[in-house]
Every structure is written in C-alpha cells, then in structure tokens.
C-alpha cells in the first residue's frame, strides 16, 4: 500500500482546506477512501447516532500536481483509512501560504498520514512543517460498509433557497424545536416549519427552480403522477441541518434538495471538482 500526493497551487491548497473544514464540521470521524482517480470522504452513521450519511468526492487531478497510489492489491487498487477530519484541517491550516504540501501514507509507530508543508522562506533554506496524523487502516473485508449510498427515488428534487436567508431562519428555529419539517412541491415552493408547545413557525420560499436531472431515467418518476401543488415532506434533526448550512465552505452557487416523502432528505452540492452528498433520514413524530 502506497500513497503520495503533492499540492502546489495555493488556490488548490486553500480549496482543499475548505473541503476538509466542511467535512470536519459535519463529522468527528470519517473514512478517507483513496482510489487512482478520486479521493472520497465518507461517513455512514449508525441509526442510533442519527443515521446521517455523507459522501464527498474529489477529483484528485484538480487538486494534486503529483499523485501516486498503490492499493491493497491489483484487483482492489484502493486504500481505506479512518481518521478524525479535524486533524487534517489542523495540518492544512499551517499551509495557507505554503509553497507546497506533500501528503504521504507512512508507517511511523503506527500508520500515519504525513503532511509535509513547505513554508515560504526569504533565505535559501527551506522551512518545512511536518504533521503526522495517526490513521486506522480499514481492512479489505470491511470495505463493503462504505459503498456509495443509493440515490433514492425522490418525490421531489428542487434547488434550495438563498443560503444566507435559509441559514438565518434555521438558526432561529433551532432555538424553538429539535426538529424541522422541510416540504416542497412542484410549483417552486418550499416550506420550512417547526412546531413546539408554545409556537409554530413556518417560512415559505417561492419561485425556486428545479435541476434537470441527466441521470437515470427513473429519478423523478415518482413525482410525475403527483399534483404539482401537493407538498412532500420530511422531518429532520434541525441541529444537523443548521450544522450543514453554517458549516459548508464549498459555497456552490446552488444546492439541490431531494426529498423522499416522510423518509429522507438528501442535499447535493456540486462545485466544479467537488461533490458532496448529505443524507438525513426523516424522523417520525
């Protein structure tokens, strides 16, 4: 097993850091999957802990100037590591004006991801900061647990409203209840609602747009036979939603929200070379 990558462009270094920050805000532990073309950050929580899952893909070619990897064997040319993403953020924070960042899988006392950050220097001596982040190597037999979550057959797929407005609204609603209901219809309307003993608050967004799915044709089939004015709804953990809205630093121009009635809300961020999917299971009353 070998892995070695090098980032040189400062824009790439900063962008990579922002992706890591986003992941770290959402999960304490995650799985890093390394394949020849892509890096994946994966979280699949057990139902008892909330049951959310995250699937984040990065095209390595957009970030790394050098990238070499060798998996477990030729048939399974991949590496799965378990690590706290916060540690990666800390390592990358020292690299915000770096000349280069080398990331290597090393064996010190235990398996580590080693970050070698070459700092700018006025003299001819180079200054390097090295971070060793202990990681846990996930054995081949457990890889099945980290399959890409299946795209559910959505009842509705709609673009989210303005992120700043929604974030403000959800942040306030968070004080009022632990759960939030998100509903949308095919007339461009989305409702965000909390209900508590003392208060019911509902925010209505209108004139939202719809993504045109180029994916498998079965997506959206469930919505075809539905009255466009009818709302589909799912109730989710408001803290996790607030965390997602305020924590994401990828800042795509648009976020897609997919809802399976009373079952799941799926957020999909697509930004050039990064895609992030966030699945939040619905919580029944």
């Amino acid at each position: 097993m070998r892995f070695r990558g090098k980032l040189i462009d400062i824009g790439c270094i900063q962008h990579f850091t922002r992706v890591l920050i986003t992941i770290a805000k959402l999960a304490k532990m995650c799985t890093l999957r390394i394949t020849p073309n892509k890096l994946y950050f994966i979280l699949s929580e057990r139902v008892a802990n909330g049951g959310v899952s995250i699937w984040c893909e990065l095209m390595q070619g957009h970030f790394f100037n050098e990238y070499n990897m060798e998996g477990v064997n030729e048939e399974a040319n991949e590496i799965f590591l378990e690590l706290p993403p916060e540690n990666l953020v800390r390592a990358m924070k020292t690299a915000q004006s770096a000349k280069s960042v080398k990331i290597k899988l090393t064996k010190k006392h235990s398996p580590c991801l080693t970050f070698e950050v070459e700092q700018p220097s006025l003299s001819s001596h180079s200054r390097t900061v090295v971070h060793d982040i202990p990681v846990h190597i996930i054995p081949r037999r457990l890889w099945d647990e980290f399959d890409e979550p299946e795209m559910p057959d959505f009842d509705i797929s709609i673009y989210m409203p303005n992120a700043r407005v929604l974030r403000n609204v959800v942040d306030r609603m968070k004080n009022l209840s632990n759960f939030v209901s998100i509903s949308a219809n095919q007339n461009g309307a989305m409702r965000v609602k909390v209900e508590a003993d003392q208060v019911t608050v509902e925010t209505h967004f209108k004139d939202l747009e719809y993504p045109t799915w180029s994916g498998p044709s079965d997506i959206g089939q469930r919505s075809r036979n539905r009255d466009p004015a009818e709302f589909v709804e799912a109730r989710i953990d408001i803290r996790r939603l607030a965390q997602f809205l305020s924590g994401q630093q990828v800042n795509p121009s648009k976020i897609i929200c997919n809802i399976v009635d009373t079952r799941v809300v799926h957020f999909f961020l697509l930004h050039d070379d990064v895609s992030l999917q966030y699945f939040m299971p619905a919580i029944s009353l």
Binding site: Q198, T200, E202
Partner: peptide, 10 residues
C-alpha cells in the same frame, strides 16, 4: 425579500 414567515405564538 418575498420570503414569508408566519408564526403562531400561544
């Protein structure tokens, strides 16, 4: 900005 919120407070 065209976004409406209604609250009902006991």
């Amino acid at each position: 900005n065209g976004v409406l919120t209604d609250c009902s407070l006991t």
